[in-house]
């Protein structure tokens, strides 16, 4: 009688441990699942001003001539990157729906070939999902010969769906050396 109760208890404990270990493993996985979840969340809400690193699908959009949005361009260098990096113009007045092109100037200041990548960030974050790029140097690693400098293009448009209270959008690139 006591024997069977103890055996039953041992089985119940084993079952419990198995289940709880499963929960533990699932939560460990959940920690990693938070990474893609976070990216999705960023894209939906513009959390932290992350923009998609991909070419936007070009669908024709109605140009909203009545509205003007200021787009500011900002360039930063991550520490230790021996580069010159600056926008061609600091700001542009744009109409939502229309494509515009501007350039950023980058120059390798060392006497060795170097690669780097520009990482975009948009402020306010809510504007990030309304900022479409069809051409951008930030999509790829950029290789520069020793002392080479060049203009790098970015072609973008602002979605007319941009919330009406956003009047200035800042596009910032930080140049990281690989």
């Amino acid at each position: 009688m006591v024997e069977t109760r103890e055996a039953g208890l041992a089985a119940a404990n084993r079952r419990m441990v198995r289940r709880l270990l499963l929960v533990t493993a699932a939560m460990f996985g959940f920690g990693f699942a938070l990474v893609p979840l976070y990216d999705v969340l960023c894209q939906v809400t513009g959390l932290n001003g992350k923009t998609s690193g991909r070419v936007a699908v070009v669908e024709p959009m109605k140009v909203d001539e009545s509205r003007t949005v200021t787009v500011e361009f900002v360039a930063s260098l991550n520490l230790g990157a021996p580069w010159e990096f600056a926008p061609q113009v600091t700001r542009m007045q744009v109409h939502p729906g229309q494509f515009y092109q501007t350039h950023f100037w980058a120059k390798n200041l060392t006497n060795q070939p170097m690669t780097g990548q520009a990482i975009p960030s948009i402020s306010p974050g809510l504007a990030a999902s309304h900022f479409q790029k069809i051409e951008c140097f930030c999509f790829n690693h950029q290789r520069f010969q020793a002392g080479e400098g060049r203009q790098m293009p970015v072609t973008f448009r602002i979605d007319p769906e941009l919330p009406p209270d956003v009047r200035t959008v800042t596009l910032s690139y930080t140049f990281f050396q690989n």
């Binding site: 932290n48 001003g49 990482i119 960030s121 402020s123 930080t174």
Partner: peptide, 16 residues
């Protein structure tokens, strides 16, 4: 403090 806030400065990202 006299301006009423603080804002984090994060490498690679911009806050306004």
């Amino acid at each position: 403090p006299e301006l009423g806030w603080k804002k984090d400065a994060i490498p690679g990202f911009i806050n306004e």
